[in-house]
Design a binder for these strands. Sequence first.
DNA 1: TATTGTTATACTCTATAACTATA
DNA 2: TATAGTTATAGAGTATAACAATA
Lengths: 179, 179
Amino acid sequence: MTPASAETCATALHADLGWALGTVFRAYLKASDAVVADLPGGHRGYQILTTAARAVPATQLSIAQHLGVDRTVMTYLLDDLAGAGLIERRADPADRRARHIVATDQGRSALADLSRRLGEVEEHVLVCLDADERTALRGLLRRLALHADARDPVADPCQLVADTAAPTRPTPRRRGRAR
Amino acid sequence: MTPASAETCATALHADLGWALGTVFRAYLKASDAVVADLPGGHRGYQILTTAARAVPATQLSIAQHLGVDRTVMTYLLDDLAGAGLIERRADPADRRARHIVATDQGRSALADLSRRLGEVEEHVLVCLDADERTALRGLLRRLALHADARDPVADPCQLVADTAAPTRPTPRRRGRAR
DNA sequence: TATTGTTATACTCTATAACTATA
DNA sequence: TATAGTTATAGAGTATAACAATA
């Protein structure tokens, strides 16, 4: 076991927002895995269920987009949730191509239980922050998420990095056999 | 196009820390994709490079653990980074099983360029927050990430959800053919 | 015997393409 | 013609298992 481990690596990356986001996100997923383990679709199943329990029904496509899921994957996820009796697909009277996703009574009661337990997990993930800091973080993340959700196109970053003078070489992203 | 879209769905999920984290993380990945597109390993390649550029060298395994990557995947990632001339594997004099990962000169100059451009992307992702809020968010996320990084085992959540009275049914997590 | 790193393989997950039905 | 949803399939990504070298 080399001495160069935890805090060394951490300090190296502490300025990287991407690393912090990824690490916290992974920690959340890991901490909440047990709660959603028996739910079809896991974490995404829970988020679908949350959307489906709302008063105003959303279509498969709109849910997929706002959850960052491909629409073909959404089909499978909904198949499983419907198979478990948690959601239903209903024809959109205004557009017979689309389906409204609504939670069943069973889905709502499952959601209530899951929400309570995930709330506990969230607090546990934030355990090293005090009450004010937790509120602040939740608020900031929520604003960022809503902002990102609103303007999905993400046009600007393309301009930001328009001067893409390849920093290394145009490696085709896939591993090479060499050693 | 149904009226139930963006803000409807968003309000439904705004209380969910997991959704916010995932959405912001995806937004970051999307915004920074172009910057790391030509770097072997993409985002993870960048984080490995950051670690490799530090004064105190880290081993493959320690990097893998702190980046949430399987050690077998780390081998491939390092193969590509080494193939591009950005990092080197050096024998750990204290333990000849382990390899120290160090950045080459080329790797350091590539890292400098990438860091600058990723910094711009980060600011762009945080564009809807003012300066104080950005600092606050970075600080809070950093503390959470360091905390999660320090105690990887994540023992507590298992106790938190010890009373796992399956909320739905023990679905084997995989999709069923039924419709 | 346990651990680091490597390799091959099997597996999971995702996305592409093609199709149906609506608009 | 374009869009919502479905399906099959190919492809990317991941992890398991087995191995070699070292502790």
